[in-house]
Simulated assay, not measured.
Amino acid sequence: MQHGGRGERSDSWAATSDAGLSVGMSCRLQLVWARGAALASFMQYLRANLSKKVGRLVDWSGGFWERRYSAEPVLDDTALVGRLRYVLAHGVKEGLVERSAEWPGLTCLPQLLGSTRRLFRWFNWTKRWSKRGSEELAVGEGRFAEEWAEPVALELAPLPCWKGLGEEERQRAVRALVEEVEVEARARNKPVLGVRAVRAQHPHTRPEHLKRSPRPLGHASTSQALRELREQYRTFVAAFREAAARWGRGDFSAPFPPFSFPPRVVPGRVARVL
C-alpha cells in the first residue's frame, strides 16, 4: 500500500474519523471504525481511489473487491477485543505466513506494538496535473514519480475499551493475542506458504475456490445481545418500509428512521431534488 495514491488530498478524514485497527489482503480490507464518523462517505472515497489509482500499478480495471462493503456494529468490549484478535490472525490462520509480524501487506500490528503514528507516501496527482503540457512533465515523469510523493501520517486511535490502559499494558495485551493466534496455527500442523511465495504471487491470481460466508448482523459476546440487535433491526426495517410506502403515495412528510437513506428525488417529479 505504500504506493497507493490519492487524486485529491482529503485532510478532513484525519479530523473526523478514528480507525482503531486495519489489515489489508488481496480479498478483503478490514477496519474497526469509531461510531459517529462519516463511514459511508469515507468508504466510497477509499474504494474509488483504490480502484483508480492502485489499479494502475497492477493493470487492474474495475473494483478491487467483488462484494460491496458492509459495516457491522460491535456491541461490547469483549467482542471488540475479539475483532482485534481476528484482524491480527489474518495471514496466519490462512496458512500464508507463520507469524503475524511477517505479513507483507498492510497491517496495524507495527502501530499497535510501537508508535501509533505511521508515515505513508501520497502521490499528489493534482500537482502533476497542474504541470500538464510543461517540459518537465513531457520528459516522462510518471504518476508514481518521487516528484509527486508527499508524506502523509496515519495515526491509530486506541480501542475504546483500552483507553484507560497505559501504552505498555496495551502492547502486552496485543502480544498475548498474537501469541494465541500463532500457537493455534502451529497446532494445526499445516504447511505454510511463506512470505517469499506470498510476494511472488501475481496480483491477478484468483483462488480456485472462493469462500462466500454470510456476513453477520453484528458482533457480540452474548447471544442475548445479538437477539436484541436483530429485533432492533426488524423495527428499523419496518419503519423504513412504512415511510417509503407513504412517500410513494405522495406523502413527502413521512419521517424516515435515523441513519437511513431516504429517496433523494420526489417520485414523478425528477427535476425536484430534495
Results as ranks from 00 to 15, higher is better:
2 Q>F: 14
5 G>M: 11
6 R>C: 08
8 E>P: 01
8 E>Y: 06
10 S>R: 15
12 S>F: 06
16 T>E: 09
16 T>P: 03
17 S>N: 13
20 G>S: 15
22 S>G: 13
28 R>I: 07
32 V>L: 11
33 W>E: 03
34 A>I: 04
39 L>K: 04
40 A>P: 06
41 S>H: 08
45 Y>V: 01
46 L>R: 03
48 A>V: 08
49 N>S: 07
56 R>N: 08
58 V>F: 09
59 D>W: 08
60 W>I: 03
61 S>C: 10
67 R>C: 08
74 V>E: 04
75 L>R: 02
75 L>M: 00
76 D>R: 05
77 D>V: 06
78 T>N: 09
82 G>Q: 01
82 G>S: 00
82 G>D: 04
83 R>M: 15
84 L>G: 09
86 Y>A: 14
86 Y>W: 15
87 V>Y: 05
89 A>K: 00
92 V>P: 00
94 E>V: 00
94 E>T: 02
95 G>I: 00
98 E>S: 06
99 R>H: 09
101 A>F: 04
101 A>R: 05
103 W>M: 05
109 L>F: 04
115 S>T: 10
115 S>G: 10
117 R>M: 10
121 R>P: 05
121 R>Q: 12
122 W>L: 15
123 F>P: 04
124 N>W: 10
129 W>Y: 14
133 G>R: 11
137 L>Y: 09
139 V>W: 04
139 V>I: 15
142 G>Q: 03
144 F>R: 01
146 E>N: 14
146 E>V: 12
153 A>C: 09
156 L>H: 01
158 P>K: 00
160 P>I: 02
161 C>K: 01
164 G>T: 04
164 G>C: 00
166 G>K: 07
166 G>Y: 07
170 R>Y: 02
177 L>R: 06
180 E>I: 04
183 V>S: 03
183 V>E: 08
183 V>L: 06
184 E>L: 04
186 R>M: 05
186 R>E: 07
187 A>T: 00
188 R>D: 04
193 L>Y: 05
194 G>S: 03
200 A>D: 08
208 E>P: 00
208 E>R: 13
209 H>G: 10
212 R>D: 10
213 S>F: 13
216 P>F: 01
217 L>A: 08
221 S>P: 02
221 S>W: 03
222 T>C: 05
226 L>N: 03
227 R>C: 09
227 R>Q: 12
227 R>E: 09
229 L>W: 02
230 R>T: 07
231 E>R: 14
232 Q>W: 03
233 Y>H: 15
238 A>G: 12
238 A>E: 15
239 A>C: 04
240 F>K: 08
248 G>P: 02
250 G>D: 01
251 D>L: 05
255 P>R: 03
255 P>I: 05
258 P>I: 02
259 F>L: 15
262 P>Q: 06
262 P>A: 11
264 R>T: 10
265 V>K: 07
267 P>Q: 02
267 P>S: 00
268 G>M: 00
270 V>Y: 13
271 A>D: 14
272 R>D: 14
272 R>N: 11
273 V>L: 15
273 V>F: 11
274 L>A: 12
274 L>N: 11
